[in-house]
Every structure is written in C-alpha cells, then in structure tokens.
C-alpha cells in the first residue's frame, strides 16, 4: 500500500501502548518481586524474602485452596454452560444462534460488584433461597453453608463467569461443521459417543480457553471471597490486595508473579494439547 511513514506507524500505536503499559508492567512485576521491602515502599536488590514469606505462611496453603475452589467453579460452569453452547449450535436456526448467545451478554455486562454482592440477599440466612425453602417446607432451619463459606465462593464464581464458558464454547462449536453431526447421525453415534468422541475433542480449544478464563478470574478476583467467603476466605487476588494494603509491595509482586506463572503454564499446556490458535479461526 502506498502509505508514507507516519501513516504506517499509526497502526503500531496499540502495540506500543500494550508493550509499554501491559507487557512491561507484567515483566517488571517479576523483577520487583525480588526487591527489598522498605517501610513504605521498596528498593532495588535481590532477595527471595517475599517468596519465603509466601511459601512459609498460610498464604501458600490458601493459594492452593483457592486453586481447588477455582477448579470446582470451572467444572460446574462447564456442566451448566457448555451444553447450552452445544444446544444453540445444533438445534437453533442458524440465523438466530448469535441472538440467543447474546442473551448471556446482558448478565455479563452488569457490574460484577453488584452481581457478586446481589448473591448475599439471595443466599443469606434470611435470603430468598432460605425463605423459599422454609416456606415450602423442605427445610426448617436456614441453610448457612451457601454463604460466607467456600461453597458460597464457588457459587459466586460460577454466577460471575459462567457466560464466558458459553461464549467460548459456542465459538468453538461454531467452527465444527454441520456435516460432522450428520455423519454421526448416519453412523448411528448416540449422545454419549457424539459428545465424547466428536464434540469435546473438536471444541477442546474453546472449552480450554473458557476454562482458563474462569479459573484465573476465580483465583484473582478478590471481590468474590471478600463478599461471599467466610472469615479467612481468600484467593490469590485477595492475598495480593492485602499485601498492597499492608504496604508489602514485594510480596504483592511475588503473589502476582506466581499467579502469572500459573496462567502462563496453563496456557502453555493448553497450547501444546489443543493448538489454541484454532480458537481464532472464526475471526481470521
């Protein structure tokens, strides 16, 4: 194209911006995690003190625990959400598919803060769920395990991030050609074979992308354990947040580093297994 230098460089603005204000801060996070802590700030140096602090305290245990409840949120989201993606792809008229998927944009676009908080009057001791169950006589005492508890955190994560499993799952299902289903009908594949042999392998990149999104956000969004977890409920995001509040910046950076490395490791494994670039096929 006949463009002069300036026109050409305009297109590099986003790249430059993201290198400066996204990639650089992420890389420097790792560097800062080795800095020496001072009373209100930090100074250049090389120490593993922050990591020692992390691994020898309850934080490491909490980190692993938050990985577990995040994994639970992923599994629940998959079970609830992925069949919806499959259903829309297979049984809804082609022209209407996107519109049905768009239904899930609406809850996703309401403030996460409000959505997470809104679970309190629903799940609480005298919340909607308990009142309803008591009114129809299924229980006599309010169920307390669904709020201010690990279960409450998982429920909150699922309510917050479920739509992403549906979006990513649908995007992956969209790349599966119609003939695949017809061949399976012809060969006589039942629902179980169809799901296990065909749908899951073909949609794997999308399922994985959705799962990673839900996993890291469940680990990293402090709001959910803060508002819905019981006393002492934390996840990686909240540990980092608490470190910032305590002005222990190297510790916050160390936790962020561990979180980022967890993410990179997951993405690397996923890429080796499923070739995540396939997720991009519909838009290239």
């Amino acid at each position: 194209m006949g463009e002069n230098g300036i026109q050409k460089w305009v297109f590099y603005i986003p790249v430059i911006f993201f290198v400066l204000f996204f990639a650089a801060p992420i890389v420097l996070t790792i560097v800062f995690s080795f800095f020496e802590r001072t009373q209100f700030w930090m100074e250049p140096g090389f120490t593993l003190f922050a990591y020692e602090n992390f691994f020898t305290s309850a934080r490491a245990e909490n980190y692993v625990f938050s990985m577990l409840h995040s994994a639970a949120a992923v599994v629940v989201s998959f079970i609830i959400g992925f069949p919806i993606a499959v259903f829309v792809r297979r049984r809804v008229a082609k022209a209407a598919q996107h519109r049905v998927i768009l239904l899930f944009i609406l809850p996703f676009m309401i403030s996460e803060l409000v959505r997470v908080f809104a679970m309190r009057p629903v799940l609480g001791r005298n919340g909607v769920v308990n009142n309803f169950l008591i009114d129809i006589g299924i229980i006599n005492e309010p169920i307390t395990v669904i709020l201010f508890s690990p279960l409450g955190v998982v429920i909150g994560d699922v309510m917050s991030f479920l739509p992403f499993m549906i979006f990513a799952g649908f995007l992956a299902m969209e790349a599966v050609q119609n003939y695949v289903f017809e061949v399976c009908d012809d060969l006589g594949a039942g629902p179980v074979s169809l799901f296990g042999d065909i749908i899951v392998p073909l949609a794997a990149p999308g399922i994985f992308a959705g799962s990673v999104f839900i996993f890291v956000n469940s680990m990293g969004v402090a709001l959910v354990p803060t508002l819905l977890g019981g006393p002492g409920a934390v996840n990686a995001g909240l540990i980092a947040n608490q470190a910032i509040v305590a002005l222990d910046f190297p510790l916050a950076m160390a936790i962020s580093t561990i979180m980022i490395l967890t993410l990179v490791l997951l993405l690397y494994i996923g890429h080796r297994l499923f070739d995540l670039t396939k997720v991009l096929e519909p838009i290239s």
Binding site: F21, I26, L28, N217, G220, A236, G237, A240, A252, S256
Partner: peptide, 12 residues
Amino acid sequence: VPADIMGSSLLV
C-alpha cells in the same frame, strides 16, 4: 489477568 493482579502490577 484478573483485576487485582493487573491493578497491583500497574500500581507498582
């Protein structure tokens, strides 16, 4: 990159 992690990184 979750909100609290991104926020902390950018803050520092």
